[in-house]
Amino acid sequence: MAEGAGTAIPFWPAPDFAAWIFDTFINEGAPLENAEHAHLREASIGVLWTGVENSKRQRTIVGRAELGETIGGSDPWSKGRAVQQLEGWFGLVPDFILTFSAPYADQADDATFCALVEHELSHCAQERDAYGMPKFRKFGAPSFCMRGHDIEEFVGVVARYGADASGVRALVDAANAGPTIAAADITFACGNCQR
């Protein structure tokens, strides 16, 4: 955990990490460029490290993506405090905020860490209209939103009833096809994780 004034800081901004995310996954020509994240080239993304443990539904949470504009809720005081904190960290309220567990990242291998980052980026979406076309705000900026998981199912249900009956055929087929990025490519792009 970061240290400040003799006490541990539970959350700290990571502008270098944010730049690495753009340079690795989002920007055109990035070593692990993913066309599914192209809409984020115009987004502001604030990245935080944390040492605070988090769990939900008996699962440890090691990454989280949120819309910056929704932080703090609707109460004017809560919202005001959140905006002040975000502006202090990032200089603005970012379109998205990604938070990552520093202890987890420290022990994760390159491929696992890259998968975590891309998982969180996959939650960061551009809204679509009734015809499936990207939505934009009044002055032409993309209108962003959060995207849910493609698939949510229990391993036990898949084991008992199969991929088709449990609605995970596309995931199983993707897993069986193997990764589209070689481990060496991931190691090169994720050099900051190497020991």
Rank of each mutant, 00 (worst) to 15 (best):
Asp129Cys: 04
Glu127Lys: 15
Leu116Asp: 07
Gly140His: 05
Lys138Ser: 12
Val117Tyr: 07
Gly132Ala: 03
Asp109Gly: 13
Cys114Thr: 09
Gly140Glu: 04
Asp110Gln: 12
Gly140Leu: 01
Cys114Asp: 09
Ala105Asp: 00
Thr112Gly: 08
His123Gly: 03
Lys135His: 02
Asp129Gly: 12
Ala130Arg: 11
Asp109Ala: 07
Pro134Gly: 03
Arg137Gln: 14
Gln126Tyr: 08
Phe113Arg: 04
His119Leu: 09
Asp106Gln: 11
Pro134Leu: 02
Ser122Ala: 15
Tyr131Gln: 15
Ala115His: 12
Pro142His: 11
Gln107Arg: 06
Asp106Cys: 02
Phe139Trp: 11
Ala111Tyr: 09
Ala125Lys: 10
Lys138Phe: 11
Leu116Ser: 03
Glu120Lys: 03
Ala130Ser: 10
Pro134Lys: 02
Glu127Trp: 03
Leu121Asp: 04
Cys124Thr: 03
Gln107His: 00
Glu120Ile: 06
Met133Glu: 15
Gly132Pro: 04
Gly140Asp: 06
Gln126His: 09
Ala130Trp: 08
Glu120Pro: 07
Phe139Lys: 13
Ala115Cys: 08
Cys124Met: 04
Ser122Asp: 15
Lys135Ser: 14
Asp129Ala: 06
Gly140Ile: 04
Ala141Gly: 13
Phe139Gly: 00
Phe139Gln: 13
Arg128Asp: 00
Glu127Val: 08
Phe136Met: 02
Lys135Gln: 15
Ala108Glu: 11
Ala130Glu: 15
Cys114Asn: 11
Asp106Glu: 13
Ala111His: 04
Asp106His: 04
Gln107Glu: 06
Pro142Ala: 13
Glu127Ser: 15
Ser122Arg: 14
Asp106Lys: 12
Gly132Tyr: 05
Ala141Thr: 12
His123Tyr: 00
Ala141Asn: 11
Asp106Phe: 02
Phe139Ile: 00
His123Met: 00
Asp129Pro: 11
Leu121Gln: 05
Asp110Val: 08
Asp129Ser: 08
Ala111Ile: 06
Glu118His: 01
Cys124Ser: 03
Asp106Val: 00
Ala141His: 12
His119Phe: 10
Glu127Gly: 14
Leu116Ala: 08
Ala105Trp: 01
Asp106Ser: 10
Thr112Lys: 10
Phe113Cys: 09
Val117Lys: 05
Ser122Asn: 15
Cys124Glu: 02
Ala115Gly: 13
Asp129Phe: 04
Thr112Arg: 14
Ser122Pro: 05
Glu120Trp: 04
Glu118Pro: 01
Leu121Phe: 08
Ala111Gly: 02
Arg128His: 02
Glu120Gln: 12
Ala141Arg: 15
Ala115Val: 11
Cys114Phe: 10
Ala105Asn: 02
Phe136Asp: 04
Thr112Cys: 05
Asp109His: 08
Gln107Asn: 00
Gln126Thr: 12
Ala125Met: 06
Glu127His: 08
Arg128Glu: 10
Ala108Asn: 11
Tyr131Ala: 15
Ala105Tyr: 02
Glu118Cys: 11
Ala105Gln: 00
Leu121Ala: 10
Asp110Arg: 03
Thr112Phe: 03
Ala115Phe: 05
Thr112Ser: 14
Gln126Pro: 13
Cys124Asn: 01
Asp109Lys: 08
